[in-house]
Design a protein around this nucleic acid. Structure first.
Length: 314
DNA sequence: CGTGGTCAAGCGGTA
DNA sequence: TACCGCTTGACCACG
């Protein structure tokens, strides 16, 4: 099986981000004209930084990267009526072209305020607007991108919360449904729950190993992995998984700066029998530093065959 | 110049 | 009950 590694949003090596933003309060304070102008400047800066990051990823053979939704500040704010597509069509296109030319898979992650199964209608409506945003930018880039979503809240009744998610998902535009993939979380919806939803809706599941460690119902991953992998069978993309290490025993849920290499190797051994190519996103505070540190260890301590700097055969 | 509080938004968990 | 983490940064008032 061939494993590719990715990291999230910020390159610490380059020390740049493509997610400079403006608060709504500040945007409001400076007036509409100045607000638009500020947004336009920020967006163009963010695009420029993103191009630098993609170029850097390419040079370092990183084929997998999560875009920050902050690329477009206030994109989904209900009081900010700003077209983030048309004026930037050229730029979206350029990012999409770089993604293809450099062979870098791009995914996104709606933030914690995107709760599709909320009992509050306004929260659901906001969530749909956010998901629309993700769909539209993938469309503008003309790439087959996916947005990794959590199921949402529990609201004291998990069964009901799952039903609400399924019902609300089915009401979404088909275009939006097509970009959503679901991840197990660290508190409420475990592997079993998310797999059930994914199989019901016929959408891919992202296994988050750290979340599984934080919250599970005693599921044996060996049993569940074939079904998790099968949720990807109708996609052109490789199955995606998340891996991170706990900060400490006490703060287990928090992400550590770096990956524990032995735990990572154990995880790969768990995956080995299924012999499937997988993209693994590393979620660490130290971002790309953590990725390179892990790779250095793997090169030193294992006999994995490296096809390029970050791609290897197990 | 550095630090802490605030900013659009939701949840569940912890002290 | 009030704050924390998830995501992740800007900018102000204050010392």
């Amino acid at each position: 099986m061939i494993i590719r590694l990715g990291y999230v949003a910020i390159s610490l090596v380059l020390n740049i981000t493509a997610s400079k933003t403006i608060t709504y309060t500040n945007y409001n304070k400076i007036g509409k004209e100045a607000g638009y102008k500020k947004l336009d400047i920020l967006i163009r800066e963010n695009f420029a930084k993103l191009k630098e990051i993609l170029k850097y990823n390419y040079k370092n053979h990183i084929h997998f990267y999560r875009l920050s939704h902050n690329l477009i500040p206030l994109a989904t704010h209900h009081n900010v009526d700003f077209d983030y597509l048309k004026p930037y069509q050229q730029l979206w296109q350029e990012i999409g072209n770089l993604s293809k030319q450099y062979d870098i898979r791009l995914d996104t992650h709606p933030d914690q305020f995107c709760v599709l199964n909320s009992p509050r209608q306004e929260v659901v409506q906001n969530s749909i607007v956010m998901l629309e945003f993700h769909q539209q930018i993938f469309h503008a880039m003309q790439i087959d991108g996916k947005a990794v979503l959590h199921v949402g809240g529990c609201f004291n009744n998990k069964e009901k919360a799952i039903k609400t998610f399924i019902r609300n998902f089915k009401k979404l535009d088909q275009k939006i449904q097509n970009i959503i993939i679901l991840e197990n979380d660290d508190k409420v919806f475990g592997v079993k729950d998310v797999l059930y939803i994914c199989e019901t809706l016929n959408i891919p599941m992202v296994l988050d190993y750290h979340h599984y460690k934080c919250h599970n119902d005693g599921e044996d991953l060996k049993e569940y992995l074939p079904r998790i992998l099968a949720t990807w069978s109708h996609e052109n993309l490789r199955p995606k998984m998340h891996f991170s290490s706990p900060k400490s025993k006490k703060e287990f849920r928090s992400h550590s700066d770096y990956i524990d290499p032995l735990a990572f190797i154990d995880f790969l051994e768990l995956l080995r029998p299924f012999n499937t190519d997988i993209d693994i996103m590393l979620e660490c505070k130290a971002k790309d530093y953590a990725l390179f540190t892990l790779i250095a260890y793997l090169k030193y301590k294992t006999n994995y065959h490296f096809l390029d700097e970050t791609t290897f055969k197990v």
